[in-house]
Amino acid sequence: MNAPFPHIDIVKQADAEALLKDVVAKLRNSQVVPYLGPAVSEPSGTAVPMSPEALAAFFGTKVALPRRAKGNAWASAQHIESTRHRSSVTALMAEAFAVPVAPTPLQQHLASLPLPMIVDSWYDGAMRTALSQRSDWGEVQGITRAHIGEDRWYRFYDAAGAEASRDGAQGWTTLLYKPHGGIVPAKNFLITDADYVEVLTDIDIQTPIPDTVKDRRTDRSFLFIGCRFNDQLLRTYGRQVIKRSGTEHYVLVEPDSLSKNELKFFIAERLTPIAIPLARATEIIIGG
């Protein structure tokens, strides 16, 4: 017998817009951290892969993949690394994200606000480009520790793209946190199964999470925008990034597409699902 579909109240229609407007007011007051998924950049019309499934499909056009790896970006990248070399994975990731992604109006708006932190969970550089009109910000990216001989989990970069120190990051008005790495400024990619084995070994004790991220999330809520949690890895990262933060979090959803595991995740992590299409949500966030 199939397990019952988990139940969670999803805020819809007028109530959803009213709730989102309240969340936006808190966002403007630095009480809410935006957590961006790849769907945020989709309105730009880019040909760059904007989901793990699309990235896996890209790998499949370049390399013959075994059945177990097809459709799974992390397993596809691991197969390429295992049968070729890490440099092949990096080269293919650089090719996949070579075309710059233009910032969307939502990203440009978020960049105009003195937010303490923006989490960007995809590999493109659109959010960095949106922030480039300012100089009072910087970025921290997750990095692979496999094969690089370094005893660290992340690197810091200033607004110009130069590597920076963790001490310097304390003075940035806005921190852009890219937990999976990114194409710019230095082609850091967490992408293979081996990369994530390294991180997931210690992520429960929060070692791979930068201290400045821990500081900036304290007592704050998160608003997940353009994110899916239909993969265990994505749920794990979402859970660990919001750990020890505020007690109320929100996620924009399309109810008909949600999986049972996503609903369970929302319940476990106390995320309030708000059913508003991304285009309309963007209007509300920008309009305030």
Results as ranks from 00 to 15, higher is better:
Ala3Tyr: 09
Ala3Gly: 02
Asp9Val: 04
Leu20Gln: 12
Val23Lys: 11
Val24Gly: 03
Ala25Ile: 03
Lys26Cys: 04
Lys26Pro: 04
Arg28Ala: 04
Ser30Leu: 07
Pro34Glu: 13
Leu36Cys: 14
Val40Gly: 08
Ser44Val: 04
Ala47Val: 06
Ala47Asn: 07
Pro52Asp: 12
Glu53Cys: 00
Glu53Tyr: 15
Ala57Lys: 06
Phe58Tyr: 14
Lys62His: 15
Leu65Pro: 07
Arg67His: 12
Asn72Ser: 06
Trp74His: 10
Trp74Gln: 12
Ser76Val: 03
Ile80Met: 09
Ile80Glu: 02
Ser82Val: 07
Arg84Tyr: 12
Glu95Phe: 12
Ala96Gly: 15
Phe97Ile: 01
Ala102Ile: 05
Ala102Trp: 11
Pro103Val: 09
Leu106Tyr: 11
Leu110Phe: 01
Ala111Gln: 00
Ser112Asn: 05
Pro116Ser: 03
Ile118Thr: 00
Asp120Ser: 15
Asp124Thr: 08
Met127Asp: 02
Leu131His: 15
Gln133Arg: 08
Ser135Thr: 03
Gln141Asn: 00
Arg145Phe: 14
His147Val: 13
Ile148Trp: 05
Arg155His: 12
Phe156Tyr: 11
Tyr157Trp: 14
Asp158His: 10
Glu163Val: 14
Gly171Thr: 15
Trp172Gln: 01
Thr173Gln: 13
Thr173His: 10
Tyr177Arg: 03
Tyr177Pro: 06
Tyr177Trp: 14
Lys178Thr: 04
Pro179Val: 03
His180Thr: 02
Gly182Gln: 05
Ile183Ala: 10
Val184Ile: 06
Leu190Ile: 12
Ile191Cys: 07
Asp193Asn: 15
Tyr196Arg: 13
Tyr196Gly: 10
Tyr196His: 14
Tyr196Thr: 03
Val197Asp: 15
Asp204Thr: 05
Pro208Cys: 06
Pro210Glu: 04
Pro210Ser: 11
Pro210Gln: 03
Asp211Ser: 15
Val213Thr: 06
Val213Ala: 07
Asp215Gln: 06
Thr218Gln: 11
Leu223Asn: 03
Leu223Lys: 01
Cys227Arg: 04
Phe229Lys: 00
Gln232Val: 15
Gly238Phe: 15
Gln240Phe: 02
Gln240Asp: 07
Ile242Arg: 00
Val251Phe: 12
Ser257Tyr: 13
Leu258Val: 05
Leu258Phe: 15
Lys260Phe: 02
Lys264His: 12
Phe266His: 09
Phe266Pro: 07
Ala268His: 14
Ala268Trp: 08
Leu271Pro: 13
Thr272Phe: 02
Thr272Val: 11
Ala275Phe: 01
Pro277Ile: 02
Pro277Lys: 07
Ala279Tyr: 01
Arg280Ser: 10
Thr282Asp: 05
Glu283Ser: 14
Gly288Ser: 01
